[in-house]
């Protein structure tokens, strides 16, 4: 892995929509994580700062840079990570 991300912090941009946006009280935030970090690490951190996320954790899926990705995905500096609750378009 890249040496720059094995020590120190990495920052990701988090996007939140619909019910989760209302429950968490924000539509976007920047989160600094200790590197290396996965999607699950990000969710753990967000859950500590925003307890409202806990109820949605079983059904939230992550999109990393606009593509669905498993929580095991390693995050990189500057990634855009969206929290996607079950969608209801159409």
């Amino acid at each position: 892995m890249n040496d720059e991300t094995t020590n120190g912090a990495l920052r990701v941009r988090v996007l939140v929509f619909s019910i989760l946006r209302e429950k968490m009280g924000c539509d976007a935030l920047t989160v600094a994580l200790d590197a290396p970090a996965t999607g699950a690490d990000l969710l753990d951190r967000l859950e500590r700062d925003h307890p409202a996320l806990r109820a949605f954790r079983p059904v939230v899926r992550l999109a990393v840079n606009q593509t669905y990705a498993p929580e095991t995905t390693a995050l990189a500096e500057g990634d855009e990570v969206a929290l996607i609750t079950p969608v209801s378009g159409g």
Binding site: S18, I19, E22, V59, V60, R61, T67, Y68, A69, P70, I84, T85, P86, V87, S88
Partner: peptide
Amino acid sequence: EWVQGERPPDLP
């Protein structure tokens, strides 16, 4: 009321 889908989206 926000409508929530029955199941989460599928992953690739």
